[in-house]
Amino acid sequence: MPEQQASPGGDPDSARRPGRDEELLAALRRSDEDAFRMLVREHGPFLLRLALMHVPSRAIAEEVVQDTWLAALDGIDRFEGRSSFRTWLASIVLNKARTQGRRERRVLPFSFLGRRRAEGRDEPAVDADRFQSARDQQPGAWARPPVDWDSPVERLSSDEARRVLFEAIAILPPRQREVITMRDISGLSAAETCNALGLTATNQRVLLHRARSKVRAALEHHFQAEEPSR
């Protein structure tokens, strides 16, 4: 089977049906290898993505995912199905990836304090200089409003735009990166994301808001650079 085509308009990670994980899990508890293989394939891309947020290379991310599955096998009898299987896997992989990431950082320190600060609450969604100031006629109204993107679906699917998306996400503070990856890339619900990350609903929403605002701004910047006339 050709692996994981991106499905236009759909959520690439979740070709899953409710109840399917439960059937596979029951089979896995009976030591069914096919069930294991299917779970590994189905959740692999999702876990890899989460691991890649914290470790510097694909090879290390694959190791983290492998460790995650081994831990999941060992813990399968303790998994009570109170959270979704995917949420449970996500919390295991994030735990391992964060630990591994800290280990890598000790070797290769990168600016960490800058990131901590950026996680704070008072960064605006849009730069203040895009709006009229208190001295202008209509304070708080757009001074330089956003313009509609032409044929957004095509342009946003280009390799160039994808590179912009990945880079914008890569430089987000870790918590924002985790939330936007789970919600918008992998299509988890707000509740699943809160559960996997141990966040309150409000906190999750604030992080999502910061993250989406920055990613949108990065795309806007990219499109403006393409069309200097506008």
């Binding site: 085509q5 991106a6 499905s7 690439p12 891309p45 890899l48 409003p145 509609d148 946003l156 299509g187």
Partner: peptide, 22 residues
Amino acid sequence: AYLDQMRETIAALGRLPAESLS
């Protein structure tokens, strides 16, 4: 326009290709 851009951004994130385990 801002709202449209935000929706388009979210949709584009959902269309990013997934990578499988080797």
